[in-house]
């Protein structure tokens, strides 16, 4: 990764008279190296500064989550380091009968798993079709999706709520309801993986078709094995998104606390006045959500980079 993009330091020049490439004898060679070193030092300082800014909030969050609830109260405080480190908040999340945290966590995990599977199937179907199959109405579909995408997503919240309610998928049924609305329109997010399919040479399909394979077989046996990076990217995105959704999740599940997702539950702890002293619990809950997601993301970072880079280049 790092080799290819390095810009070679050019201290050579083509000597046209002699027809050879020779190294330039630069009178200020030493000061140039010094300049280079100074630039690099500057960059290191900047990078360290950036890293501190980037990491500080997360480190603070972890600090707060370990503050002792018993001796230092669970509200906001103006100091950073806990006076007494403890696992009070975590213990409360797991053990206290009043805590629904595990339930919320399970809800979200369930939603995320279902989304990861169904949404991936939807996205791959659409992007494969639009990328590699030619049929009447293909352009029309792409234009319609483009136009639909310009409507703000929250516009239709009230309609979706009542549609789900007709199916019995609000409040107590909020979990399947949320899965349904997350995946139903997910085919519209086909751009990135279509960009990926576009790069696979068409000759592969054609030779297989000549050999008598059906389109379905081409899809399953030839394209899918090549599409591993984009499949993983799609799964990763589909899995991560439900963890952060507050708006739809709270709108669909309102009033039914056992059916919240983690985002709704934790958001309420800090933004609804009924909850006094829940700030450190929010931090602990936040850490428990962030750690596995971050670990997963970092582990699959490579595919993510391929996905966003490809998507950005192809629009």
């Amino acid at each position: 990764m790092s080799k290819k993009n390095e810009i070679p330091e050019v201290d050579i020049v083509i000597d046209e008279q002699k027809g050879v490439i020779r190294e330039v004898k630069q009178p200020n060679l030493r000061s140039k190296a010094g300049h280079e070193r100074r630039v690099n030092t500057g960059i290191y300082i900047l990078l360290v500064l950036i890293s501190v800014i980037w990491l500080a909030p997360f480190v603070f969050l972890v600090f707060q989550s370990f503050r002792s609830y018993a001796t230092e109260d669970g509200g906001m405080v103006a100091y950073l380091l806990p006076k007494q480190w403890s696992l009070d908040n975590y213990r409360w999340l797991f053990n206290d009968p009043k805590s629904n945290f595990l339930r919320w966590y399970g809800n979200t995990l369930l939603i995320a798993l279902f989304c990861a599977v169904i949404q991936t199937v939807m996205v791959l179907s659409v992007s494969y079709t639009l990328s590699r199959l030619r049929f009447k109405g293909r352009k029309l579909i792409m234009n319609v999706v483009l136009v639909l995408g310009m409507f703000p997503g929250f516009l239709t919240m009230i309609t979706l709520y009542f549609l789900l309610k007709q199916l019995g998928l609000t409040q107590q049924g909020a979990i399947p309801g949320l899965i349904l609305i997350y995946v139903a329109s997910s085919g519209m997010g086909y751009y990135i993986s279509k960009g990926f399919f576009d790069t696979i040479p068409k000759s592969l399909d054609e030779s297989a078709r000549i050999d008598g394979a059906t389109r379905f077989q081409v899809f399953l046996k030839i394209i899918m094995p090549l599409a591993k990076p984009i499949v993983i990217y799609t799964i990763l995105m589909a899995f991560m998104a439900p963890w952060g959704d507050y708006v739809f999740a709270s709108y669909v599940a309102f009033g039914s606390e056992p059916n919240y997702n983690v985002a709704v539950g934790l958001y309420r702890w800090v933004n609804v006045n009924d909850y006094q002293g829940y700030f450190t619990r929010f931090c602990a809950g936040g850490v428990l959500v962030a750690v596995p997601i971050t670990a997963l993301f970092l582990a699959l970072q490579k595919y993510y980079v391929e996905g966003v880079t490809g998507g950005a280049v192809k629009g």
Partner: peptide, 19 residues
């Protein structure tokens, strides 16, 4: 350096931005 930076993508925004 890259890994440090992408933390903000990985951590759900309702945790990081609220904090």
């Amino acid at each position: 350096w890259r890994t440090i930076l992408v933390m903000t993508i990985a951590i759900p925004q309702f945790v990081s931005l609220l904090y």
